[in-house]
Design a protein around this nucleic acid. Structure first.
Lengths: 203, 203, 203, 203
DNA sequence: GATTAAGCGAGACGGTACGTCAAGTCTTGTT
DNA sequence: AACAAGACTTGACGTACCGTCTCGCTTAATC
């Protein structure tokens, strides 16, 4: 569980109710499912969770951070780290896993909503980078680095751009929805990357 | 100029004031510059343009469509179509042109705001696809198709995925802002694509 | 028909359309029936009458004057002047006629609406006094004066106060609707007035 | 003070601010004085009282009910109950008191505005009857009933019609403003009533 | 027969206020 | 202290009509 809630008081006074915490997150998940990110209001979360609005604000400064926490749990649970032994296998597994998590799911719709929100709220953007982009990227980076270690690809490979190509294309289709995230898409993209990776293979 | 304003009646009644139209778009551009998409309100546009709110709503159903129209003018004006003779040259010109248009500019910030808005407003999403994504993509598609005609790349090339890789990576950096849109980025990406494009180079 | 419409031009130019005039008054009457004075808007009258708003404003400066004209026709048509030969008979006829015109009728509801409007619009108030209050009062005054001529009541009778008592009580019940305008009410009021009128009967 | 504000919750939640309540009523009174009922807007009351519009709407559903509460305080404060010992004295005191309260005063203009509003808003009409018409009438009814007890007038007297005559005439002049509410008017009206009351004087 | 002037239906115009909604904060009494 | 409840101020929303103003088009009376 990714913790965003601002640090609770040290010891004095009544401790924060874990029951409220759960009620809030459950209500959030429920509303996300029924209405989506845009139409979720703190007011309704409070109502459904039978919780005062202040109790929510005490933990999460904005709707974005609240939803982010709810999202992270679901997202991470669905992103198994595969080690297939080959770069192609690992990349394909990663991309396919991402597509499975995202395509036609509440998690996917929430991801889209969060990315939109991140553009509107600089504070959320920071959380987003620190707790989502960087950690997930670190995982994916490991795939490439393993391939370098295995000698599959040159050590001069630009890891960042490789990942931007792989997931950039995927996020592009998710956000512009001009074309679907088919499995063929995943395969062709990965093949493209693999080929593009080896500039001096024949040399 | 891309026209979104809901179609006015053919000849009957008082015609829509072109002066108001311009005043509204100018006010919009001004506020976008000063405050950005998120903090732009229809109310202020109306105030600055010395126009009734209804006059705005009569033409554009939402803030999104209004900003879109203002954005399109600026964006298209900055996207010159280059024909350098080589695929590499054309792709690089296109990507560099996009980066120049977008990096550190009001147009870029507005683009980000619009992409966010598109995720929240399904009606805007439609306009967005029909008037932005598809037209721009058609232009870029021409680059690839020229290369095919020239015999530079195989005719079996998947044009869509090629473009998704190229611009997907770029939009990814724009929206996640985890890394900058440097010129080196443009070069490496294009090289990647070029290499990836030619599966049967040796054949 | 009471004419309020501001005087039309003498001869030059296209004459005002009598058809439009009628269409407007009909639409007005219809809406008064369906929705009542408060919810009648010039906009809807124009729409229903298939007439430009300006065509209405050219004739009647306000909603009040328009409705007033429509009202007057109906009201006057239902106020027959009775001459029964006795003061009691005449007063009773007048009061009963008024109650019949007003109780549970569109005309009555419109009268109420107009009296309300008169309190809000000083210009309408003037029209109201000149074209409704004074003419109607003149008619009623004649009843009293006939009785004086017949020697039924002293010539020192305060006609105004007599009428204010008679109709004041009636309007009071109409506007406060605390009690109904029954026929018994009419009889008792008239009897009261008749008795009150003769201070020096025995002298 | 007549309370109209929709009933607040018993003890839970933050209690309604008495300070806001007073600020709203003061602003209302001020605007009534400066501009009158018609030109009073909730928007301006909110502005002057430094209060959100919602805070007003939470207490009073309409402009009518708000003004009503402000009016009642002033009106009741100026309606002293006199007991002069004679019916004539009591009626004259009541009528003169009413005229004094109403003639040329803000309270009078507000009363007129409210009566007009009552004709336009059925919900206000209910409040009006329950909190103004009936209570005031009950007071006046007491005058007549005292006279009956004293044996001054027969016990068969129709109290309602008596009051409708007395105040009906007065409201009539107030609303039609065809004639002034002079003191002579008050005297003649009362005399009329007194005479009319005693049908069997000679018996 | 051409010109002129006003009226016509339609509907856009700049305004104003509406009543609502949700934001994030604050104030109760209670735990 | 944190809690549920709910009031607080703020600010924008999108709507509805107001009364005025163009449009292009009749429809007479005047030249």
């Amino acid at each position: 569980m990714v913790e965003i809630s601002s640090a609770p008081a040290p010891g004095r006074g009544r401790p924060r109710s874990e029951q409220s915490q759960l009620a809030i997150l459950n209500a959030t998940r429920q509303i996300l499912e029924e209405r989506g990110f845009v139409d979720l209001t703190i007011e309704e979360v409070a109502l459904r969770a039978s919780v005062g609005k202040a109790t929510i604000y005490r933990r999460w400064p904005t709707k974005g951070t609240l939803v982010f926490e709810s999202f992270m749990f679901d997202f991470l649970a669905r992103q198994p780290i595969a080690d297939t032994g080959s770069l192609r296998g690992d990349l394909l597994a990663a991309l396919r896993g991402w597509i499975r998590t995202v395509k036609g799911t509440v998690t996917g719709r929430t991801l889209v909503g969060l990315i939109a929100e991140v553009q509107r709220d600089p504070e959320l953007a920071e959380v987003w980078r620190d707790r989502f982009v960087i950690p997930v990227r670190t995982q994916h980076r490991a795939i490439i680095e393993r391939a370098i270690k295995r000698g599959e690809i040159p050590s001069t490979t630009d890891v960042d751009i490789t990942l931007d190509l792989l997931f950039g294309a995927a996020y592009h289709r998710l956000l512009q929805s001009h074309l679907t995230l088919s499995d063929r898409f995943a395969q062709v993209v990965v093949d493209y990357i693999i080929r593009g990776l080896a500039p001096d293979e024949s040399t």
